[in-house]
């Protein structure tokens, strides 16, 4: 593979990622007086987080719907109870794994009955 081509692509990756992250820090100065804009900025982060989660959390590579739903609800319940981040991450991925292993058996059981 052409090294010059690859390194140029690395550079493009760096420029597009870094400058989109940096730009708002450079233009954002001090406090905003307008109440409406302050309200938007207050809600925007949570809107962004929600649109990152849905619907992708249920469409993950190499994972059926059942384990994804289980992992999702485990994470929701544990964070609702305000458990520490490491607990939320660990239990959510462990139970996702358990249900990934069980998934074929549960599916075939449902087909039998």
């Amino acid at each position: 593979m052409n090294a010059g081509y690859v390194w140029t692509c690395v550079l493009i990756l760096f420029v597009t990622t870094y400058f989109t992250r940096l730009l708002p820090f450079l233009i954002f100065k001090g406090n905003i007086k307008n109440k409406f804009i302050r309200s938007i900025l207050a809600y925007l982060p949570y809107a962004v987080l929600s649109s990152i989660i849905f619907p992708e959390v249920f469409e993950q590579k190499g994972m059926g719907l059942l384990p994804a739903v289980v992992g999702f609800f485990v994470a929701v319940i544990l964070s609702y109870k305000e458990k520490s981040l490491i607990i939320v991450l660990a239990f959510s991925s462990i139970l996702t794994y358990v249900f990934m292993v069980l998934d074929p058996y549960i599916t075939s059981f449902l087909h039998l009955s």
Binding site: V57, S79, L89
Partner: peptide
């Protein structure tokens, strides 16, 4: 995803 759920 759990990380983002825990933030939300």
């Amino acid at each position: 995803y759990a990380m983002i759920i825990a933030a939300l």
